[in-house]
Amino acid sequence: MASATAKMAFTMKVSQLTKHYGQTKAVDGISFTVPHASVFTILGPNGAGKTTTMEMLEGIREPDSGEIEVFGERLTKITRSAKQRIGVLLQEGGFEPYLKVHEVLTMFASFFHRAIPVGDILAAVELTEKSGALVRTLSGGQKQRLAIGAALINDPDLVFLDEPTTGLDPQARLNIWDIVSALQARDKTVILTTHYMEEAEALSDEVCIMDYGSIIAQGSPKSLAEQLGEETLIEFRGLDVSARAWENLQLFCKAARNDQMVITLETDHLTDTMEALFAWSRTHDFKLRDLTVRQPNLEDVFLSLTGRRLRG
């Protein structure tokens, strides 16, 4: 079966997936394909429907309608047989606080037909020294690594990582990035959600942006950024800009926005716009602090499509 998966171009294909909560349509007939051995990231602001989508794909909730094709099998919901080859890191999920780390992993291993030796998983998530510790004594980062260990105990072909680095310090976040990269190197398929745009940009092969229960854009981070065209972005700190200065600023660029005290100008003619900006600065006696010039990234795509930042 695993070799059959390797030959397939995709690991999972979702068609017209729909889910309602009462009268609210949380997911509205979405379709997408997750290529084999890729990192597929679902992005979306709060309430976009990505958590419900993930829960349906993980098998926690049943879709109202639609089809999920996974490992070459067409299903209306994720079956127990499919779960044998799936690993899930939930966004929120606890462990029995009075179990020891190795006991948790041994128990999870017993749920699957095949399992990696507990010692190997402990080493992979760097918890060997904490093997005999009670779960309640672990730090946040250690608990998250244990959760990843439990998600990978069955050596899954498809791994769901639902906001794996939220709340972790930078070092712990980088450790988890390494684990994701290692999974990809071993031909595993990863479906990821994250609140960190740089994480999505660094790890993803394919990004799917959701809003109001629908998919509004999909592609590689680079191709999505290219959708914004040949424009260049100029950014500087935007404190105390008078109304008149703001009006004048918009006269010499394609678009301007002031978001969280950072002014961003979009332009197709960088030199002309820069000259005009310096003149504007002198005219309004405005100091251009932290001035940067850059190409659009995934955050800009997200902002332009949803009108909101990912972390609002």
Binding site: G59, K83, V88, L90, G94, E96, F111, A150, N154
Partner: peptide, 17 residues
């Protein structure tokens, strides 16, 4: 408590019924 602390939820994403 296991439901509220989402311990059970971790089980339901495995083949355990």
């Amino acid at each position: 408590f296991n439901r509220d602390r989402k311990v059970l939820r971790r089980y339901w994403v495995t083949p355990l019924s």
